[in-house]
Design a protein around this nucleic acid. Structure first.
Lengths: 204, 204
DNA sequence: TTGTTTTTTGAACGCTGTTCATTTTTCTTC
DNA sequence: GAAGAAAAATGAACAGCGTTCAAAAAACAA
């Protein structure tokens, strides 16, 4: 039986992430408690702090996994050559679908609040940044003349807008919002982008 | 000296809301503590619970005030007769400006998480709902043939999309996002709507 | 095996929102 | 006004939280 030290640590790290993910998936971010977690991972409460500086860092690890999963779903959504409108619509609907299927995990990604001055770790922002590239494909076909940095910014904007529609719908912060209504809103929104963006980004 | 009972209760209620708002404005939602609050409002900790069922209810009261203020800002932004593009752009930029000026208060509105099953009180959803009507004016001019319920749904969609762009930018969840970049994104977005929405909502 | 270092442990700390027996205040009745 | 009943305000106490750190256990070195 090997007791390789770094390996043991790594195993505990993984166990903690999985236990944390299970807790979040079944009860949301607020269900993540140090003591419950320690019991689930089979270690002492203090052991958590040997592997992660605090629970925030652990949450980032869980959220990164969720984003990776979303990344895979989006990647599987479109194949090269799909026309921009179909591609954008499918991406938006896939995003919406993911937020429904993985409801609690996905909510945790955006509900996670870090102390006022600080910002997410760079490696995490890298995982987030990968998501935009899915939109860049269709966007390039839609706006062949736009410079890459404009397209990059636009990809972020469209992602944010889609996110707003999906998340305010999901959290029902604006009142009840059935799935079908949100989906329809996304269809109209993406169509509007395809029709309007070429003229909107062009210099006046 | 009048000691009219309901009046005293109402005064304490107001004092608590103002103290809570001050706490949030200077340190965010997480700076709202029952004990600090009681001291600031000049009452015992227990007294809070004579007026509000819990701190969540108090937060709703504070957030409603913030939304009312936003409502007034948006109302002052456009006058009837402004063309749809200008109106929408101004509304979006006003929303963005408000989120910057009232940063912490505004963040609290959306950061406030209520327990899983429950939803915001009806009176609060009413306050939220009022916000959409500002977009409905320009939208009616842009889409004169769209039925009112379609316009209502669309107003919500555009609000949500704008919110997504502004909020993900503000919280810097996707990486650094300077004010000017967000503002430019909103300009492009609103222009795209004006160009694209008429075709997007029309039946195929 | 013994001594030294490293890692793990979980009771204890300080803080939180909320409660509820006790005190204080207010209202009613004579 | 005084005495008694009803209502409201009080703040110590409670249960829970994330986090720490002296002490114990495990791993390594000689």
């Amino acid at each position: 039986m090997t007791t390789d030290l770094p390996a043991k640590r790594a195993r505990l790290r993984d166990d903690l992430i999985l236990a944390a993910e299970a807790a979040i998936a079944s009860g949301g971010l607020s269900a993540l408690k140090a003591r419950t977690l320690a019991e689930a991972a089979g270690c002492a409460v203090g052991a958590i702090y040997n592997v992660f500086p605090d629970l925030d860092a652990l949450i980032f690890a869980v959220n990164a996994r969720t984003l990776e999963r979303l990344d895979q779903v989006l990647a599987a959504t479109i194949r090269p050559g799909t026309d921009p409108e179909t591609a954008m619509r499918r991406l938006a609907l896939a995003y919406h679908g993911f937020s429904r299927t993985e409801r609690r995990r996905w909510t945790a990604v955006f509900a996670h609040q870090i102390p006022d001055g600080s910002s997410p770790p760079d490696w995490y922002l890298g995982v987030v940044g990968k998501l935009f590239r899915h939109i860049e494909g269709p966007l390039a076909e839609l706006l062949p003349d736009a410079p890459p940095e404009v397209r990059g910014g636009l990809a972020r904007t469209l992602f944010s807008a889609t996110h707003g529609i999906v998340s305010l719908g999901l959290e029902e912060k604006l009142g009840p919002a059935p799935d079908e209504v949100i989906a329809q809103a996304l269809v109209v929104m993406t169509r509007s982008w395809v029709l309007g963006l070429p003229g909107a980004v062009a210099p006046r």
